[in-house]
Amino acid sequence: MKSTKYSDKVLDHFRNPRNVGSLEGEDVASGRVGNPVCGDLMEVYIKVEDGRIVDAKFQTFGCGSAIATSSMTTEMVKGMTLEEAMKVTRADVAEELDGLPPIKMHCSNLAADALHEAIKNYMIEHGLAMEEDEEQTQIQTTEIKGKEEFIGKGISERATNFDDFRDLRVVVMFTGEESVETAIKLTEYTNRVVLITPKRKIAVSDELNRRLNDSSVKVITEGEILEAKGEGELEKLIVHNLDEDTTYELFVDALVTME
């Protein structure tokens, strides 16, 4: 079956998604699942009154079925109690949509998971459940395998001569404000600058954060560099995606470690 062979209902929800947007307020909670690196990211918002979901909204980055399942999930849960909504499964959502192509059943059908996250968050915020231990996020401490081999051949501690980076694909490791300044400055010399951190976000001053957002720097969060590879010079990095616990290749010309 073609991966885009969708039912009329899926297409209808893709074309006219219901409940797009976000919600705010004390009786509102949200859940976020997926990771843009793997192609789908969904946020579901619920508004709860007397233990019932009275409104639900979503925002989704993803393919046609990701959008349709988000839309359908928010439609289905309106009026449900939190308990009922907790029982809504991916299969229920797919069934309401008259089915999904088999290959899409897993990856693009995360809306039920986002809904469950939102419910959990609501319960925690309202003292109805205990908070789970937050994983400790850290700056990268793992040694990059193969690093020594490429020092001076693509890997440097600091960007001393910015002209050396002209038109190269540069990755800068986030170690604080100075690394962000370096990344921003590099964009004057090349259009491909990536700032990478194992943390969930880049924590710097508001002013610097604004400048980072306005720049063309591409930020990778929850990414840890495991290994440097190349033939005589740095050519690619192996990156561990901490959120999904997967690894991927990032093709680069230079790495600035900011140690």
Binding site: S3, T4, F14, C63, G64, A66
Partner: peptide, 9 residues
């Protein structure tokens, strides 16, 4: 910020 299959559809 957007995904290709959704663009294609």
């Amino acid at each position: 910020g957007i995904e290709g299959e959704a663009i294609l559809l």
